[in-house]
């Protein structure tokens, strides 16, 4: 059940439900990312891309009905004592993803399609057939795989691909390697659907879905470690240097090279508020962010003193510091929160 995984998103501390759902759905606004950071759920970023918010909300309702979640304040959810027991049970029974952090740095969904098609092409090629229904009719995907195939086409291609797959599959505990292999498509082998895999392996379809997403992430992680083979080459263009969005990363680079926020805004023709949003995004997704360059010692001290009595930083209210320092921009308040959160995690 999808709701089981939704329950595992929450803890006994109250969390803004919509923000956490949006983390899963891959929304990259600063407030969403900040919620992901404070709840320690950034690893789920983009893992349920395309799933409508209403589906999450319906699952949350079920969990509230079941007594596992409660609503401490409108828009917030937290796990109940009964929910804690249920979570314990679920973590023992349900497959738990381990490699979803790949979603942050790799276009996982695009790689899934390319990988499926490339393996089909190589499989059919190894059987010397060229009349088959391609797994995707998407023009862009077909063109990418075609170029890739031309570049790697050689008598060794088949054995190279088998070596990569074997290398990866032998690292997996049972039955994961079988799930991965049985879902592939190729010569005289259409592959099993999630529904069928669920019956074969006696799991629910949602669990198979989670397992397969995670297997694709594990496959990607393995290929990033072994970057010389043909499939690693197919993956390579989809890997970003870091999880920060391209535009925010550029702002961050300019900043690191010593440009002031105002200079960046002029040079990149951005609003000052956008520059600040970019830096906040970079700060959330980069644990080594140089916070001290932006937060003067006085500001840090002011904020530390103001919130000394409030250990949980999700409960800090900006108005409190505003009362003492009316000119302080929200940007510095949020940046300081992020710093505290990053350093607490260390």
């Amino acid at each position: 059940m999808f709701a089981d995984y939704v329950l595992l998103l929450f803890t006994t501390a109250p969390r803004r439900a919509k923000a956490l759902f949006n983390v899963c759905r891959g929304r990259r606004t600063v407030s969403t990312l900040f919620a992901g950071l404070t709840a320690d759920r950034l690893a789920w970023l983009d893992s349920w891309h395309g799933v409508p918010l209403s589906k999450f909300e319906a699952a949350a309702n079920e969990l509230v009905q079941a007594g596992w979640l409660q609503i401490p304040a409108p828009g917030y959810l937290q796990v109940t004592p009964a929910g804690v027991d249920q979570q314990k049970k679920l973590t023992q029974q349900l497959y738990q993803p381990v490699a979803w952090a790949q979603f942050q740095e790799v276009d996982v969904r695009r790689f899934n399609v390319l990988n499926q098609l490339a393996l089909q092409v190589v499989s059919e090629f190894s059987h010397q057939t060229n009349r088959y229904y391609p797994v995707t009719t998407d023009q862009g995907m077909q063109a990418t795989v075609k170029l890739w195939f031309r570049r790697w086409h050689s008598p060794q291609l088949v054995s190279q691909v088998v070596a990569e797959l074997t290398g990866f599959l032998t690292t997996l505990p049972s039955p994961l390697a079988d799930v991965f292999a049985n879902s592939l498509t190729g010569f005289d082998f259409p592959g099993q659907t999630d529904q069928q895999l669920a019956q074969l392996f006696q799991r629910t379809p949602v669990e198979i879905l989670v397992m397969r997403k995670d297997l694709n992430c594990r496959w990607i992680a393995w290929l990033r470690q072994q970057p010389t083979g043909p499939l690693a080459a197919l993956l390579q263009p989809l890997v970003k240097a870091n999880p920060v969005s391209v535009s925010a990363w550029q702002t961050y680079q300019d900043f690191q090279q010593g440009a002031s926020l105002a200079q960046i805004a002029t040079r990149r023709r951005l609003k000052m508020s956008t520059v600040r949003e970019h830096l906040l995004e970079a700060a959330i997704l980069t644990p080594s962010f140089p916070f001290e360059q932006l937060l003067q010692p006085e500001t840090r001290q002011l904020l530390a003193e103001t919130y000394a009595q409030t250990p949980s930083l999700t409960q800090w209210r900006f108005e409190q510091v505003q009362a003492v320092a009316p000119d302080l921009d929200f940007f510095y308040f949020r940046l300081y929160q992020i710093m505290r959160c990053q350093r607490a995690a260390d």
Partner: peptide, 10 residues
């Protein structure tokens, strides 16, 4: 899985 690979890739 090893049988699947044998079947897929000649």
């Amino acid at each position: 899985w090893s049988t699947v690979l044998d079947q897929l890739f000649l």
